[in-house]
């Protein structure tokens, strides 16, 4: 991670091309973050583009105190929030009920792992936005509790409870979707 801090410092000093290294390293996971947050593929790409534009714009505000990754996801989260505010009239959130599981190709394949993952993804979409966001950042973006709690503006203990609540809810949705929970 320290090399990313060094890259950001070079960008701050005017070597803008160094942003390409960070883009190549993170754009796919960032894209998947937006997808998992319920955005369409096209919008997710727009959001990735916008996030990197902001990274460039706000480059001077990055300080070496935190990791680049957590800073980047902070910007990504705000970018998405701006998007929701702008599109308040049209819901961008894809509800699992609207996105039928039957349409998911991975379910039609008899691979247990994929099936399980699809159910996780479907269950995830059923969570309230705030819980989903925390869980996605923790599970898929692999940010630690401290980083996420700073990002979402709560203390670590509150965040621990939030994650537990999110996981508990995820589990019940998962059981319903998989037919385990009767």
């Amino acid at each position: 991670m320290t090399d990313e801090t060094a890259l950001m410092q070079q960008i701050q000093q005017g070597q803008l091309d160094k942003l390409a290294v960070l883009f190549e390293r993170h754009h796919v996971s960032l894209y998947n973050y937006f997808l998992r947050s319920g955005n369409s593929p096209a919008l997710s790409e727009d959001l990735v583009q916008e996030t990197f534009t902001k990274i460039l714009a706000y480059r001077q505000s990055y300080s070496a105190n935190g990791t680049f990754k957590s800073w980047m996801y902070g910007i990504a989260k705000n970018t998405m929030a701006d998007q929701y505010r702008g599109l308040a009239a049209t819901s961008v959130h894809v509800d699992a009920d609207d996105e039928p599981l039957a349409a998911n190709h991975s379910l039609q394949e008899n691979m247990e792992q994929k099936e399980k993952q699809s159910l996780f993804e479907a269950a995830l979409q059923k969570l309230p936005v705030e819980l989903k966001e925390s869980l996605v950042l923790s599970r898929y973006q692999q940010l630690n509790y401290e980083e996420i709690s700073t990002m979402v503006g709560c203390n670590v203990n509150t965040f621990k409870s939030r994650i537990r609540k999110a996981l508990s809810l995820l589990q019940s949705h998962y059981q319903v979707l998989s037919g385990e929970g009767e």
Binding site: P41, Y140, L170
Partner: peptide, 28 residues
């Protein structure tokens, strides 16, 4: 046990279109 399953199950990542990279490099 559920938490462990959730956190360790294989997570497939989808690839964005090539257009994204093109747009980024144009922006840069």
């Amino acid at each position: 046990s559920f938490v462990e399953h959730f956190y360790t199950s294989q997570a497939d990542e989808q690839r964005p279109s090539a257009q994204l990279s093109t747009r980024f490099y144009q922006m840069l």
